[in-house]
């Protein structure tokens, strides 16, 4: 067993455990911390896959930003100790398994057409250096348009969030 496999197993355990905590916990705060564990595990996967820029972005944006935002949301709303309903999870499980089957069919049904993907070759190493990522974002041939759209999206989200959260007139102002 190589170090990569060990690291993978540890990260996989953390990720899935975090997801299960998110699903199964009674407190919203526990769920948020479970989500944090899961997201950190995914960041670890990115490291293993050689995409360190994405891993760090994941930590900065998700763990340092989004999860903190959720914790704020949790603490600004009343405690909701809603009991977990086995029945609802079972019903949801049927849908989830159906979706999973569709996904598996879609992914492995076209396994012959995974162009250039070799499942046993191992992840790329030394790829996706920050300079290349930056160039790809700024390259007209590559991702410039999505990049600009994403920046507009962020601006709109910023203005929208401020506008929605602003309490004008009515209650509580």
């Amino acid at each position: 067993m190589s170090a990569e496999i060990l690291a993978f197993l540890v990260l996989a355990t953390a990720t899935v455990a975090g997801g299960v905590v998110t699903l199964w916990s009674r407190y919203v705060v526990h769920s948020a911390f479970g989500l944090m564990l899961s997201l950190l595990g995914v960041a670890g996967f990115y490291v293993l896959l050689g995409s360190d820029f994405l891993a760090v972005t994941q930590v900065v944006v998700y763990v340092g930003g989004v999860v903190v935002l959720y914790l704020f949301g949790v603490m600004l709303t009343p405690p909701d100790r809603e009991e977990r309903s086995i029945r609802r999870i079972a019903v949801a499980g049927i849908f989830a398994v159906a979706a999973l089957v569709v996904l598996l069919k879609a992914v492995f049904g076209m396994e012959g057409r995974w162009y250039g993907v070799d499942p046993d070759r191992g992840p790329a190493s030394g790829g996706a250096v920050i300079r290349e990522v930056g160039n790809a974002f700024m390259d007209k041939e590559a991702y410039l348009l999505p990049f600009e759209i994403a920046s507009v999206l962020l601006l709109v989200a910023l203005v929208g969030a401020v506008f929605i959260a602003r309490r004008e007139g009515g209650r509580g102002s």
Partner: peptide, 23 residues
């Protein structure tokens, strides 16, 4: 990543967009 360096670049960029979207 399993397609090689170029593929990893594309995956990273798309992953970054997803992070932006999620934020």
């Amino acid at each position: 990543s399993y397609r090689g360096a170029k593929g990893l670049l594309d995956g990273t960029v798309i992953g970054t967009f997803i992070v932006v979207l999620a934020a």
